[in-house]
Write a protein that binds this DNA or RNA. Structure first.
Length: 970
RNA sequence: GCGGGGGUGCCCGAGCUUGGUCAAAGGGGUCGGGCUUAGGACCCGAUGGCGUAGGCCUGCGUGGGUUCAAAUCCCACCCCCCGCACCA
């Protein structure tokens, strides 16, 4: 970046600090109820305070602030509050890792701290303090607040809180009592990813690489095979129970450890890893170990399946004891692994001898075809394996081949078996049917396993466990979903951009029960079951109500123990008697009334703005909880959304090291530059790409804008001038203001800023082109309106320019400009000059001889009048008669017909333009712009009326049309 | 798989809801000119092809269709991106 740009940025940052200080000192963003004054309550989700925010977060908060500032200028009493989210597991997890000395985490957090603290000796001190998770949270909450202030957000900070505070937890407690009463709370079993080290459920955030390599829970069917000699059951697991028809043997891993155990009065065999998993998946039951052994023990034995097949147990090294039960049945027709292992074993007489297997028995084992796939003649697995040239069961390509075969069979496979119940079913149907049938007759149990091996961040092994008695919120209640659907469909709750409305409906259909509490993490305890902590999305659904009273609670020194449910019932629902509530809680009546007044003034939330990833979770909960707990008039009104931010075309990710923290915006760029770029670079429903070259261009434009403003402010203008160009300029500016206002009102932020900033700059250039250096006086005339229009997006710079203009009051609390009168005729006429100039250029470039002079020939009024008549729907005959009489055109009827036909072919908009203008004015404008055109073209120009030109026998004169004068170049 | 979004000129990216004003906004890049000691910045012009008069032709993922008329509507296909739950 050049030094002049750097200098400008430094200056910009310095005025940003200046105005932020002034705003804070004047407390202009602290919003209080004013009865009778229309209010606007906008919220954005509070940030999670486990580290610094980046520009992706910044997009959402900036859009929120732009709306808040816009509404303020529109005369609303605007409340834009903010708080901090610290509940849940990530903060605790990071704090633990720092305590444990996890170097990766420690260096990451050192980096975070360095964003805010330069002194290296203090950095380590701060890092040590993070061993207390609350300290970590509060540290970042405070820094994020500073970032927000330095981005110029117009937030009422008096109302801030964090979700770990006891006063907030009292509020959540109240909410959960009420949800319980309304029947939204349910309890049941739940399958989760679970860490054996921490003995806790752990989700994606706690699992290594789960963000890039997702962990899924799969349901295997563990099928019982009864050993003939001992009566023990081998539990062979499969994802494809429908292939049981084609089972030809069983596989165990001869070197792996297996466990024989007693359960439900029967004896079972699984790998020792699987045994541990089973104990977590059936936590309420007793599984008693009888003995440990190796796979080898079972080889050569026979077992009987649920379908009465008698199968031999054979050795296979591909069988992973740490995947599902560690035993599988072999179906070599459709499973590539099984096929390869079988072929391999048949060929390996040494192995057969080692395990004492008879070659004749093994060699007789052949695949059984049970599934038809169009285009596959033989055995699907065999074909796929041969095509890939795979010969060994440890060939890694088997994974891909397997999923390819499975996918094809899933979509196109049809069962070909003797059993009439299954014959002819699709693979998909057969799978479900077989699974439930086996479960029902007690021949199989579900066994849950992960799609890949996983460890938590502390290297603890992750398995699948079943949680008994998990608390849920049950959203699947008719009255609840019906109301939600209704407000969405009726637009009582509006979604911007509207294309996302359908997604909300889809989520409602899909949403059923959601676990709402966990055993660990920061948060509020379930009031009726203290062993559970309310999960962090479930405690953040109606907290916008809490903002309305948070500052009163603090200012009046209300203690947490005073915040009994009755208090919230009264404040939020108007329930109960104030005197009673007061004596019960010890909170003075007037304070309770004050809180009630504040809540009823600000509620409902007029707009909530956030990123689209929240649709399927937070925002839907937000809607549903409001519907469940509040009366209809307090339900949300508008939800607006924006897409994510990427950088130079790539996703930002910690692992890539390409994340731009918000801190760098205020230290290396500038708040206004960031805000303008965010507003302009993409419409809300598109992903925004942060591209350095573009940012630099936007900065150039800001500099240009500032220079123009500076010139305009210092210009000595005796009078603005009422010349044609200035009138045109003012009209065009008014037009831009009008359209821009409509755009921001519709949340079309990008279009709005394209108009009122970039297009306005182009307009100023054009005006200067027409007018010369005096243009500054015209600009000066619109400058105050201009900076007001831009104030929501670049509040600091416009505030500064406002002060240059001599205004003493803040621009940020002033009024949106009145749109001035637009001289549409003049706008159309002057705009048409551009087209005329380019036409002349085009023609003269085609001429062989150099041009010297252009005749610009203006059409007479009667041609315009025909356009008006065509627009009004007159027919040709009537037009001819009227025109002939009115303008004495007897003998020139063909000209009327020509004009009529030309207009007939034009579209309405063009005709309307013509209708807006008068020929006399067109002539005047051409004469007035003659010099300008001559300068552009380097040709001399002669403007004349059509009749005049015809008298002078100038060729082509009769071709003149309104707004499209005839041209003749010589 | 289910649900959602998208494929536009050298590049990014509008427009397509309400078909014609769209060879297609706005940037960027490139070329030429102005300004300047020079660079940056800024300003003007050009940037699909053809054309001795303001016009014509080809064009908006691929292939069909509807229409006087399609980037815009309908159908099929190909490709890309995002979400799928207890995690903030």
């Amino acid at each position: 970046m050049s030094t002049s740009k750097q200098e400008f940025l430094e200056w910009l940052r310095s005025i940003e600090r200046k105005w932020q200080t002034k705003w804070r000192e004047s407390r202009i963003f602290e919003a209080n109820p004013v009865q009778g004054l229309k209010k606007f309550y906008i919220t954005v989700p509070y940030p999670y305070a486990n580290g610094p925010l980046h520009i992706g977060h910044g997009r959402t908060y900036t859009i929120g602030d732009i709306v808040a500032r816009y509404k303020r200028l529109r005369g609303f009493n605007v409340l834009y509050p903010m708080a901090f989210h610290i509940t849940g597991t990530p903060i605790i997890a990071f704090s633990e890792m720092i305590s444990r000395g996890d170097e990766k985490t420690r260096s990451l957090y050192r980096e975070y701290i360095r964003l805010y603290i330069e002194d290296d000796s203090i950095v380590d001190e701060v890092l040590e303090s993070f061993k207390n998770p609350l300290t970590l949270a509060v540290f970042f909450a405070e820094r994020i607040q500073r970032d927000f202030e330095e981005l110029g957000y117009s937030i009422d900070w008096r109302r801030k809180f964090h979700t770990g505070e006891s006063i907030y937890q009292r509020f959540v407690t109240w909410q959960y009592y009420r949800l319980m009463e309304k029947g939204l709370i349910a309890r049941g079993d739940h399958i989760v990813t679970y860490c054996l080290l921490h003995q806790q459920p752990e989700g994606e955030d706690d699992i290594q690489d789960a963000d890039v390599n997702p962990v899924e829970i799969l349901e295997y069917t563990a099928v019982k095979f009864k050993l003939e000699d001992t009566g023990e059951y081998l539990l062979a697991s499969t994802l494809r129970p429908e292939t049981l028809f084609g089972a030809v043997n069983l596989w165990v891993n001869p070197g792996a450890e297996y466990v024989v155990f007693e359960w439900r009065g029967e004896k079972y065999v699984v790998s020792s890893e699987a045994f541990v998993k089973l104990t977590y998946q059936y936590p309420e039951e007793e599984l008693k170990v009888i003995k440990s052994t190796t796979g080898r023990e079972f080889i050569g034995k026979y077992a009987v399946s649920a379908l009465n097949q008698r199968l031999i147990v054979l050795p296979a090294r591909f069988v992973d004891p740490d995947n599902a039960t560690g035993i599988v049945y072999s179906e070599p027709s459709d499973a590539p692994y099984d096929y390869v292992a079988l072929v391999e074993l048949k060929r390996n007489s040494a192995a057969l001898a080692e395990y004492g297997l008879e070659e004749s028995i093994v060699s007789r084992i052949e695949p059984v075809k049970i599934i038809d796939v169009p285009g596959i003649v033989g055995h699907h697995a065999e074909e796929a394996v041969k095509r890939a040239g795979i010969e060994r069961q440890d060939d890694p390509r088997l994974e891909d081949v397997t999923s390819e075969v499975y996918r094809e069979q899933y979509y196109r496979g049809v069962m070909r078996v003797e059993d009439p119940e299954f014959n002819g079913l699709s693979v998909r149907e057969a799978r479900e049917k077989m699974r439930s049938k086996l479960y029902a007759q007690g021949s199989a149990i579900p066994f849950y396993e992960l799609n890949r091996k996983a460890w938590c961040r502390a290297k603890g092994k992750i398995i699948v466990a079943k949680i008994k008695g998990q608390w849920f919120i049950n959203y699947n209640l008719d009255w609840l979903k019906k109301s939600a659907r209704e407000v969405l469909l009726r637009n009582e709750l509006q979604i911007f951009p509207s294309k996302y409305a359908k997604q909300f409906i889809d989520v409602l259909d899909w949403l059923e029960k959601r676990p709402c509490a966990r055993k660990r993490g920061i948060g509020t305890r379930l009031p009726w079951d203290q062993g559970w902590i309310i999960e962090s999305l479930s405690d953040s659904t109606i907290y916008m109500a809490f903002y309305t009273i948070a500052h009163i609670i603090r200012e009046r020194g209300i203690r947490e123990d005073q915040l009994i449910p009755d208090v919230f019932d009264y404040v939020f629902l108007g329930k109960g008697d104030v005197m009673e509530v007061s004596s019960k809680s010890g909170i003075p009546v007037e304070v309770l009334e004050d809180m009630r007044r504040e809540f009823t003034y600000w509620y409902p939330v007029d707009q909530r703005h956030t990123g689209t990833p929240h649709i399927s979770n937070h925002l839907t909960f937000y809607i549903l909880h409001h519907i469940a707990l509040f009366p209809r008039e307090q339900w949300p009104r508008v939800i607006s959304l924006n897409e994510t931010v990427i950088r130079e075309g790539a996703k930002m990710a910690k692992s890539k090291g390409n994340v731009i923290p918000l801190r760098h915006i205020v230290t290396k760029y500038s708040a206004d530059l960031f805000r303008l770029y965010i507003a302009w670079a993409a419409e809300l429903d598109s992903v925004l790409d942060w591209r350095e070259v573009e940012v630099s261009r936007v900065l150039d434009s800001i500099i240009r804008f500032t220079n123009i403003a500076k010139e305009a402010v210092s210009a000595k203008c005796s009078n603005v001038g009422d010349d044609l160009f200035t009138k045109w300029f003012k009209s065009k500016f008014a037009e831009i203001s009008l359209k821009g206002s409509q755009m921001i009102e519709n949340m079309e932020i990008r279009k709005y800023i394209q108009h009122v900033f970039f297009d306005a700059l182009t307009l100023v250039d054009k005006y200067r082109d027409f007018k010369g250096q005096e243009y500054v006086c015209g600009v000066r005339d619109v400058l105050r309106d201009w900076i007001t229009l831009l104030n929501p997006v670049i509040p600091h710079l416009t505030e500064e320019i406002n002060s240059w203009l001599g205004y003493k009051e803040f621009l940020s609390t002033s009024k949106w400009p009145e749109i001035r009168v637009i001289d549409e005729e003049l706008v159309v006429l002057v705009d048409s000059i551009e087209k005329i100039v380019s036409d002349i250029k085009e023609i003269s470039s085609l001429l062989k001889k150099p041009a010297s002079r252009v005749h610009v020939i203006v059409a007479p009024e009667w041609k315009r009048e025909i356009a008006r008549l065509v627009l009004a729907g007159w027919d040709l005959k009537a037009v001819i008669e009227t025109m002939r009489a009115k303008y004495g055109l007897k003998g020139r009827e063909m000209e009327i017909v020509d004009a009529f036909n030309t207009y007939k072919k034009m579209n309405r908009e063009e005709l309307e333009k013509i209708a807006k203008t008068a020929s006399r004015r067109e002539y005047e404008v051409l004469v007035a712009t003659r010099e300008y055109m001559e300068g552009k073209l380097g040709l001399s120009i002669l403007v004349l009326w059509e009749e005049e030109a015809r008298h002078k026998n100038i060729p082509r004169a009769e071709r003149a049309l309104p707004l499209k004068p005839a041209l003749y170049i010589d």
